[in-house]
């Protein structure tokens, strides 16, 4: 059976580690040593801490903002690529959009610092017109720029693929029934491509929710996001069980969001 190797591999090295994380969250730490236990103290400590919920809210907001922003920026581009350019240009653009996947995200973020810093390229450009400098590095704005950089190529590609599957006859039929340009986009193209558009936004949310590179190097790491919090907790005296609690809260959130998004994407109209 060809099915078994993957199943065994993922059970052993994916599911078990995650389940182990669940067990770990009930362990206790004494004298910098972790001990198997069934202690709800870690959960209680994290879930009653104000700082955790602040970080949770911040992370969720950042991820939502990134998903919405990236989707909005990507859509006109994906629409143009799918509907308005020749097949050759389309293939070329898709190829170009794949390139970023083969470059290191960290290097890109590092490079963005040079663009965003007080003495960076953008402020130098603004200064040329007597504007600025505008504080961009170590702000939420900086974090968002990084997250959008991370998500944009993927979201444009996913949106383009789903728009490619939109039946061109439907677009013409809408025009034929007196539906104008913009209205057709909103009433026919977006609903037709709904599954792909939602999945693309979901990917942006997942990537942004778990990312720690942008919040750390462009947002300054303060206030912390959940990913940064995990690293902080672990750093301070082997508190891995508490980090596990945070990680499990993140996974629960991601699974819930993914479930809801997919429900929404595949919702059927009519009886």
């Amino acid at each position: 059976m060809l099915s078994l190797p993957l199943l065994i591999w993922q059970l052993a090295f994916f599911l078990f580690p995650l389940l182990f994380l669940v067990a770990l969250s009930f362990w206790t730490v004494r004298n910098f040593q972790m001990q198997p236990d069934l202690d709800f103290g870690n959960w209680e400590r994290i879930l009653t801490r104000r700082a955790f919920w602040d970080a949770y809210l911040l992370t969720a907001l950042l991820a939502t903002a990134s998903a919405v922003l990236t989707s909005l920026i990507a859509f006109p581009a994906a629409y143009a690529i799918s509907f308005k350019v020749s097949d050759r240009v389309k293939q070329w653009l898709i190829f170009v959009l794949i390139i970023p996947f083969f470059t290191s995200y960290l290097v890109r973020v590092y490079s963005l610092q040079v663009f965003l810093s007080d003495a960076g390229i953008i402020n130098a450009f603004l200064g040329f017109f007597g504007l600025g400098p505008i504080l961009m590095l170590n702000t939420l704005f900086g974090t968002l720029v990084g997250l959008v950089t991370l998500c944009l190529p993927l979201v444009v590609l996913l949106q383009t693929f789903s728009l490619n599957f939109v039946d061109r006859d439907l677009v013409e039929a809408a025009h034929n029934l007196r539906c104008g340009r913009l209205r057709t986009v909103l009433m026919v193209i977006v609903p037709s491509a709904r599954v792909g558009l939602v999945i693309a936004a979901l990917f942006a949310f997942i990537l942004s929710f778990g990312d720690f590179v942008s919040p750390l190097y462009l947002g300054g790491g303060n206030p912390p996001t959940l990913s940064i919090m995990i690293t902080d907790i672990t750093k301070s005296g082997q508190q891995w069980p508490r980090a596990a609690v945070v990680a499990l809260m993140m996974i629960t959130t991601l699974l819930t969001v993914a479930f809801l998004a997919i429900q929404f994407a595949y919702k059927e109209r009519g009886k």
Binding site: D167, D169, L170, E172, A173, A174, H175, N176, L177, R178, C179, G180, V188, P191, S192, R194, R269, G270
Partner: peptide, 23 residues
Amino acid sequence: KATWDRDTPMVWQSLALFPFLTV
């Protein structure tokens, strides 16, 4: 003249019914 400014409704070979809308 744009399609949407004409009164020339059409029935497509594929019918082009909107699958995300009810009858």
